Computed example of a mutant assay.
Amino acid sequence: MTRSPLQGLITALVFAFLAGCSSPESPQEVAAAFWQAMAENDASDVVEFSTLTESAEFDGYKRNWTNAVPSFGRVVIDGTEATIVTRLPAESGSEGERLELVTYLIREPDGWLVDYQRTGEAILNPSPLRGIMGELNKLGEKLSKSFSSSSDDFEASMDEFARSFEAYSAEINRQAQDAMEDFGDTLQDAMKELKESLEEALKEDRQAPPEDRVILEQAAHDLDTKGEALDEPTMETLADASHTLAETGERLSRLSDGTFSRYQDEWEAKLAEIRAETEAFFENLSQRFSSQG
């Protein structure tokens, strides 16, 4: 097969992605090889890396993927099945616009294969919720990162996500509200426990440097204020609370060495617990919307 220079670049990128493996083994590697074959319109390789059994049945999902270089997002492996968020150039739209889809894989005795039919069904008959699912993935990633470094645009993203609910059915809105209320209660309790721990540390160590006491006092005040707003949680109040937790983590990292050392592990564990609860919240929403798609 004759390859263009750009196709050669795609090949090089995929080989780099595979990190020197002799053959694709992990779901990520197999997905990369599969989309490489799609980009080259190589039916035989598509058969090799997917559940498609005959080259003659290759239809490219009724669109042209030539030179389409994918990027990959979240990977979920559940026993013998896996899903990978995959972003490819949109068939139509502004330059740089990406089509977000899911590559489905199954594990056969000889290794992972892309589920050709299921992946194609998601492309040819997209769920009306695909857009909101994409936003969930993006917000989940942003929120997870926000605990290690404050994210300035996170609240705006949450606000935009909240407004997007208006385009969907009342039942979906209701399910989202139920999930937000459950998560709001969990987040509120965790913020209260963290605030009380900070206040206890302030009472116990009155000899701590003044600048360190100010850090804890400000953090406790903000946790209390934003936590109260979760009595009636919305995406906006959840965004506010999440940003406050990000700031709390950043503030605690600025404490002097050895100050409040007895509490440091406790605070770190509490922030890790909140991060896990947050990831579970977005996973819960994703599952609810998937069942509606």
Rank of each mutant, 00 (worst) to 15 (best):
A170I: 09
N284E: 14
R87V: 00
T248C: 10
F49A: 01
L129P: 00
Q292M: 13
A90K: 07
A43F: 06
S50Q: 08
A31W: 03
F49I: 06
S92H: 15
Q287N: 11
G79M: 04
T225Q: 12
A43K: 04
P89N: 07
E211I: 13
T186C: 05
R262Y: 04
F34V: 06
E247Y: 12
D115K: 00
S127H: 06
G20K: 08
A33E: 03
L99Y: 15
A167E: 14
E91V: 12
G227P: 01
L136V: 10
S197E: 01
L223Y: 11
A68C: 10
I274W: 00
W35F: 04
T51G: 02
F183N: 03
A31E: 07
G96K: 02
E228Y: 07
A56C: 08
T234I: 07
S290K: 15
E91Q: 15
I10D: 12
T53W: 02
T248W: 10
L271I: 02
H221G: 10
E247L: 15
E166M: 10
T234P: 04
D159G: 12
D152S: 14
D42P: 07
Q292T: 13
A156T: 14
L136Y: 10
S151G: 10
P128M: 05
D212R: 07
F281I: 00
L187N: 01
E40K: 12
D110W: 06
D152M: 13
P126M: 06
P24W: 04
A16N: 12
P70N: 01
I84S: 08
L198P: 02
A31H: 03
N125M: 12
P109D: 11
R262C: 08
D240G: 08
